[in-house]
Write a protein that binds this DNA or RNA. Structure first.
Lengths: 175, 175
DNA sequence: TACGGTGGCTAACATCATTAGCCGCCGACC
DNA sequence: GGTCGGCGGCTAATGATGTTAGCCACCGTA
């Protein structure tokens, strides 16, 4: 069951909600079948009556996240807007962003076409230039990941770093 | 023991070598104390006679990796050269790069100053502009991570994406 | 009324990191 | 030369975690 082929049952939605809450409030590390079951007042094995396993449950959250991320970027008309929206989404949903990006995507469990749909807004904002779109995506992803991982020195002016890159990219889009 | 305060004993070096080989040949997932012990013909608990735990052993590999990465970037005189060297290192040591970046750095176990030393070459190549250096770093990191995670569509011209961004950044360094 | 599906449960297992406690070997020191 | 201590193994055991197998109660429906 590719996790989204069919709509989720009510119980499945309960479980996903519990998992999402746990992820949001306690982080990727706390997202464990034991904790999810506990939050629902049931035992871990019971979850297997609703999902094929942890990977499948995570895949639902990841799919939701990709969808929401794409939605957050949809209106953006320029690289500047895309970048701002990208960062805003990631910082507003740091644990979800980590779940979505820290490990290889469970492509076999994601709705087909979702990945492309999530990438579309960036390509659009890059004026259709796929190279520039990929560069922007990589930059935004790298910035966010380094920021979430606390890899920048304290006091680093991250706004300025974003500005520097996006300005440079914008110059290219007009060229 | 902060993992590098003192030089590693001969036996510790054996263990690190076994761990490094395992990481290189079978990936981050295979880097398990059981596998490391097996490679050395001993039992997992014996490893604790030499390292405080898995985190500490990993920290040694990560420290080695940061050192080697910095070394690989040292000679670079321009953002173009830095970018090329950055990518070359990551693609030559994909599993090590993953170990170094996929999870929060074990800062408490790394030699002090190492992180700054590893970042220095990028700042230098950016002509001392810290914002541009961070932007370049984020871009390179994002590119490599997305490439290693196979997130780009098949057939994507990654060289062109690198070129696009680095050219845009180079224009800024001269400005 | 019997049936079958839904959704729990317990028991059990494998893998992993980790701790506790035991012991053999071997070199240094009296 | 004998003793002692530490280095570096070992076994046994624990606690997470994900997962499978097999049992059963409930409940709506044929």
């Amino acid at each position: 069951m590719p996790a989204e082929r069919a709509a989720l049952s009510a119980r499945q939605q309960d479980i996903v909600r519990a998992a999402r809450d746990l992820l949001t409030s306690e982080g990727v590390e706390a997202l464990t079948l034991g904790r999810v079951a506990q939050a629902l007042g049931i035992k871990p094995p019971s979850l297997y009556k609703h999902f094929g396993g942890k990977r499948e449950l995570e895949a639902v959250l990841i799919a939701e996240g990709l969808e929401a991320h794409a939605e957050a970027l949809r209106g953006a008309r320029s690289l500047t807007e895309i970048a701002a929206a990208y960062r805003r989404f990631a910082l507003a949903n740091p644990q979800l962003y980590r779940l979505m990006t820290e490990r290889p995507l469970p492509r076999d469990l994601l709705p087909p076409g979702l990945e492309e749909r999530a990438a579309a807004p960036v390509i659009h904002a890059a004026g259709g230039d796929p190279d520039l779109a990929r560069a922007t995506w990589a930059f935004a992803h790298g910035m966010v990941q380094l920021e979430l991982a606390d890899r920048f020195p304290p006091g680093a002016d991250l706004d300025a770093a974003w500005d520097t890159a996006i300005t440079a990219f914008e110059a290219r889009v007009r060229a």
